[in-house]
Amino acid sequence: MQQQQRLNLVLELISERGNVSIADIGEQLGVSTATARRDLNMLAEQRLVTRTHGGASALGSGYELPLQYKIARQADAKLAIARAVEGLIEPGATVGMNGGTTVTEVARALGRSERMSSIAGEPGVTIVTNALNIAFESSVRENIKIVVTGGVPRRQSYELIGPLVAASLRDFSLDIAVLGVDGLTAELGATTLHEGEADASRHIASVARRVVVAADQTKIGRSTFARICPLDDIDVLVTDAPLPARVAAQFEKENVEVVIAPTGRATAAQ
């Protein structure tokens, strides 16, 4: 296993548990005590974890992995969700996007899509985003026109936040908004870990005729710090596994269409 893969997994463990010991890491990853200690020291030097006696802990209760360490998480699910979302977008559409790994995969799927080929020099799709990584990657695609909002970048996620986001979007009208979230419940709707990102995502959704949430099953039934929008503001949820019956009934009551992206795993009929 390469070091970057190990660091990803160690950060996942700390994110999920709040703290881990060197022994935990050795058991989970099958590495030596010396390797586990070196990895924790490296993460502590990068100020991604707090080093403790015999292990490490998360920096706080609202601990958030930097974007570059999230890429490997739920990778198959995110790719499947991205393909399904791409299928919901019509050629020529104007698409709002916030940040995050799942939405980044949606942008990549649009860039690869034969349906979104440029016609007579016109772009196959226009992406309006506050995510600098999406803007950077998509800018080399001839079939995509990129519009970037104003704002101040957050290093954790590469997303632009602040009042300039709303000011940039004020005169826009989007066909569809594709939002990544950290949590989605019937009671609170779509949530994320940072209030600035929630505000930016809310503004993107407010100027779109249709709102699609792209979220793998680990986000469903979980609520996080900052609310993006209530459930009844969401038109479609694209996820990778059928919802529990009670949750599905709540989403149906709020007229949220649920699309299950095929991942190759066996899934029960909804």
Rank of each mutant, 00 (worst) to 15 (best):
L40P: 04
L40Y: 00
N41C: 01
L43W: 04
E45R: 15
E45V: 11
Q46L: 14
Q46Y: 07
Q46A: 14
R47T: 12
L48P: 02
L48E: 01
L48M: 09
V49N: 02
V49M: 00
T50H: 13
T52W: 04
T52R: 09
T52C: 00
A58R: 05
S61R: 15
P66V: 11
P66S: 08
P66H: 13
Y69A: 04
Y69T: 07
K70P: 00
A72S: 07
R73S: 03
Q74Y: 07
Q74I: 00
Q74R: 14
Q74M: 08
D76I: 12
L79P: 04
L79F: 09
L79Y: 10
A80E: 03
R83T: 12
R83M: 08
A84Q: 04
V85Q: 04
E86V: 11
E86Q: 15
G87N: 06
A93L: 14
T94K: 12
T94P: 00
V95K: 03
V95S: 00
M97L: 14
N98T: 02
T101P: 03
T104K: 01
V106R: 00
A107T: 10
A109G: 03
A109S: 08
L110M: 14
G111P: 09
G111V: 04
S113L: 09
S113G: 11
S113M: 06
S117Y: 07
S117F: 12
A120Q: 15
A120F: 13
A120R: 15
A120E: 12
A120C: 05
G121Q: 09
E122N: 07
